[in-house]
Each structure stands twice: as C-alpha cells, then as structure tokens.
Design a binder for these strands. Structure first.
Lengths: 239, 239
DNA sequence: CGTAGTTTTGAGAGGCGTCAAGGAGCGTGG
DNA sequence: CCACGCTCCTTGACGCCTCTCAAAACTACG
C-alpha cells in the first residue's frame, strides 16, 4: 500500500468520526477502505451530478461546500440543502436509480466516491455499517422535517435566525468558531433554501445588525449574541 | 398455521405490492411473515407513537389514515405528511432511537408492526429486501424535497392544487377514483401541511369551486378538471 | 335538540414580494 | 496600476397575498 492510497483511506481520514465510517472497528474500516477507492474533484460552480443522472454512488464531502436543489419544469428552483465536510450527498438517487436533484459545488471541493452496490454489500456483512447507513438516511428525513417546519410556520426573521444557528452549530462540530462564519452561498441561495426573496434575506440581515445581534460584512458573519438569535427562533413569550 | 395468522401474513395481503414485501419471492415472503407477526389497532384521534417515544419498530399502514407532525417547544406545529394504506411510518426514529414526531390516526386504523432489528437482520440476508428498505427511505427523502419546493416557492392556489393532485394520484394507485375523494383531515391540518392558515385553505377551495375546477361538500371533493388543477400548479405561460 | 367542533365568509392589517436604482467587491484586461 | 464590467448586495417605494380577528352557518354527536 503506497503513501498515496494510505492518504485516501477512511482509516486515516480526520473526518471519519463525522462521516460514513463512524463507529466501525479497525477490521471493518479496512474493508471499507477498499470500497471507497476513488476521489473526485469538483470545481466551484460545477455539478457533482444533475437531475436525471444515473445513480451509482453516494458521495462524502471531503472538502468544500455543496448545495442540492430541485427544479421544476417551469423553471422554479428550490435549494433543498447545504452540505459540508463529512456529510453524505446522493441519497435521493436510490429510489429511482436516477438523481432527482442537482448537487452543485459552492467552492472547489473534493468528494469520496462510494459505489452504492458495494456499500450495500458491505453493510450486509457488518451490522454496524448497515445500521449507520440507516441512521444517515433517517437523519436526512428528520432534517427535512425540521426544514418543513421552518418553511411552513416561521416568519422571515425566525427562518434566518434558525438558519444561522444551524450553520454555526455544524461548523462548530467541525472545529470552527461558534461565533464567526463565512457564508459560502449567495443571498439568493439562502433565500431559496428559506423560502424567501433575496431582498428579504438582505433586509433581515440588516435588521439583525441594527439590533446588535450580528455583524455582517459581505459573506463574513459574526454572531454577537447567540442568545439573541435563539430568542428570535423561539420567542420566550409567544402564544 | 391457523386461519387467523394466514389472514395476517404478508404473503396473502392485498397490499403486498404497495408495501414492504414488494418484489420478494415466495421464500423471502415466508421469512418476512415471521418478522411481521403482530398488528395494532389505533382509534381515530389517538397516537401510534409520540415524540420522544422509544423507537423499536416501523409500521405499515394496513387500513386507515395517519398524519405525522412535529411540534416545537413554543407550541408551533407542522404536519409533515399524511400516510395511507401500504405506506411506512416511523423512519424518523432510526437516527436517535427515539421518535421525533407524533403519528396520529385520522380515522380508526390498523398497522402491521415491523420490529426494526428484525427487519435489519432479514435485510442482511435478502438483497431484495435490503434494497427495498433503502428505496423506501430514499422515496421519503425525495418526497420531503418536493414538499420543500411546494412550501418554499408556491402560492396558496398552487399548493392546494398540488396537494389535491398528489392525494388523488395516491388513492388511484390503491384502486380508488381518479376524480373523487374524501378528505380525512380538517382544513387546519391541510393548512399546517401546506404552510397556510385554515381560512386560506377554505377560501382557496371556494375559489376552485367558483372557477368550476372542483366540487366541494365538506370533506367530499370531486375533481371536475384535472387539467385545470395541473395548470394551476404548473402555469403554461409562466416566466 | 343543544353543544362543540368545523367550515365559510367578511373586513382590515401587515409582512413580504416586486420593481427599481445605486453601491460594493472582484476578476480581467489594457 | 487603474479602468471596466460583472456579479452580488443593499435600500427604498409600493402593492398584493395571506394572516388576523370576528361572526355566523353548518355538521356531527350525545
């Protein structure tokens, strides 16, 4: 095993506790290393896959940042999620053998390619892996439900506050700051995800700045009061 | 094997082509029959499970009609889906071993109880079943994405039209009419699912009636023009 | 037949979308 | 190094869609 392939291995990847191999023992990890044999680089602005593409593999984000979005015949567009390192992309393709959304890199990125038939094969062998695959899919379902709650019953300020809190929490789990972040997406993409127009996103950012809750300079955001954001999402004296 | 237990078996269930056993061969079906050994009756208005309940089993709707909904600390409530015969409830519970939503019967119902550890065990044995479980979870993810599209980018009329079309299509797949249906849920529950207030749901129904697209008498709805509904969802001359 | 729950309809208010203009940041090329 | 153009972001004015509040009609059920 040469240096290059060691570098690529799950067993030596610093994301392994966030990613697919979570909880596997060394023996299982070793087998998984043989399944995840390739990497793919995606340039900023280009697609990892598009709607209608044949589904063959899941992808684990190794570096970079993605959005997934569904598009209707009449050109409507909805961002369904933003994916950062360690997160899995492509679960939408399993049901019909074809992808039902686009996955676009928002910055230069690298993904680990996980051929799904081999993942299935290995998860018949290892209970741990099998259960973890189920958990990853279940997590996605639960996440989608909370987005439905956001879209269905929150107002603009609540949506944006919830969005920022979620983003910073995920970044913090990856070793980044709890109070500072760089947005990788445009106001329009945030708006699409949150079901609001880009102007409203911008206005709401400005409102938060006026209220002294955050600082914003373009894509850079500093959260001055996490409590303030939480109170917007979950007003202490509501109904 | 007595008559009672034959009646309960997947292999003799008229829903098997819609439900978990889809595509299994007789041998596999036989094994599955042993996993799905129990049924549960749920009275109208009561819960199959609640948020926080320990997750042990998936449930297949045998008869009746359910809603699932998530609730926030401050009493906000979002219906995340409506489930009819042959559909699977409980996937949300896998990730944390506890359910993250309530499942409420909207009419007297019966479900098949599928202990999840046994489903996992059997799907390590049968590739067909394994793949089908993955498909069911993937289908739920894709469905959720389309609801996000609806909530994020459609107006009230479009949402309700899309909702009616989806409902009648699923009923038709179960042998019911393509043009008539009985709503099992209140205007408020429809509103919660579609991200609108019950008054807006009611007004939008009235608008459709005025336009001659549907007839409504309480929970009974007759679709006079499926084309009309489709044009509302996907306006032929938009943008 | 009374009561509670559900639905319909109206009137008014407000949040967010739409349209529009200007500004800031950044890469490219002269 | 600066000018230029492009994309992205901000802000204002206005209008409309949907929410809110309210009352009445209808249905179901005891």
């Amino acid at each position: 095993m040469d240096v290059q392939s060691i570098k690529v291995a799950c067993s030596s990847c610093n994301l392994r506790e966030l990613c697919l191999p979570m909880g596997l023992n060394p023996d299982e990890m070793d087998k998984l290393d043989h399944v995840i044999s390739s990497r793919r680089r995606i340039k900023r602005g280009t697609a990892l896959f598009n709607t209608g593409d044949k589904f063959t593999s899941l992808f684990a984000v190794r570096s970079g940042f993605f959005k997934t979005c569904v598009t209707t015949a009449d050109g409507r567009d909805q961002v369904t999620g933003f994916q950062m390192t360690g997160e899995i992309i492509g679960l939408d393709g399993i049901v019909s053998d074809h992808h039902s959304c686009d996955a676009i890199a928002l910055e230069d990125a690298e993904v680990c390619v996980m051929p799904f038939d081999q993942v299935e094969e290995l998860s018949r062998e290892f209970t741990t892996l099998q259960h973890h695959v189920h958990k990853i899919m279940s997590r996605e379902i639960v996440r989608d439900h909370s987005v439905m709650l956001l879209l269905g019953s929150m107002r603009a300020e609540e949506r944006l506050a919830a969005f920022l809190l979620n983003l910073v929490q995920r970044l913090h789990a990856r070793g980044f700051s709890q109070s500072e972040l760089i947005l990788r997406m445009t106001r329009e993409e945030i708006g699409s995800y949150l079901g609001m127009k880009l102007e409203t996103v911008s206005r709401t950012f400005s409102k938060f700045v006026e209220d002294g809750i955050i600082e914003v300079k373009q894509r850079y955001v500093r959260i001055k009061s996490t409590e303030g954001l939480k109170q917007i999402v979950n007003p202490p004296a509501s109904r």
